[in-house]
């Protein structure tokens, strides 16, 4: 798994690739917590999932945890471009009804950057 991050204003764009499961979720969680601790201005995460090839409930839990941290301060987390496998697990788990999902980054910038 790889996690690339870039802060743009108060949005942290996170590009994930590979598999997000019990083995890799701790690294993902630690990286994002570190970024959020270091950049207190960040209110939103745009999580780009295009290159995530596998996710299970451990991955969902790690994403939901970061969502909750940002929500607690009035911000949010937005999922972008999930593959069919990721989309299916989001839908099955009910995460789609909690976390907004956008097909493209442009759509997220248009609809979610002013939250």
């Amino acid at each position: 798994m790889r996690t690339e991050t870039r802060a743009i204003g108060n949005v942290l764009v996170v590009r994930l690739s590979g598999e997000l499961d019990l083995g890799t979720a701790p690294e993902f969680r630690a990286k994002l917590e570190e970024e959020l601790d270091a950049k207190p201005d960040i209110t939103r995460i745009f999580l780009v999932l295009r290159d995530v090839t596998f996710i299970d409930s451990s991955g969902l839990g790690a994403i939901l945890g970061r969502y909750r941290r940002l929500r607690a301060h009035g911000g949010g987390l937005f999922a972008i471009a999930p593959s069919p496998q990721v989309r299916k697990v989001f839908d099955l788990s009910g995460l789609t009804s909690i976390i907004p999902v956008y097909e493209t980054e442009d759509e997220a910038w248009a609809r979610a950057s002013g939250v």
């Binding site: 299970d56 409930s57 969902l60 839990g61 099955l92």
Partner: peptide, 21 residues
């Protein structure tokens, strides 16, 4: 049951996923 978990930082969806798929 969906959303039942004994770990507060998890979703409790493992068995629900196994059942659905």
């Amino acid at each position: 049951q969906p959303a039942f978990t004994t770990s507060p930082d998890r979703m409790g969806m493992g068995f629900t996923i196994m059942e659905a798929l």
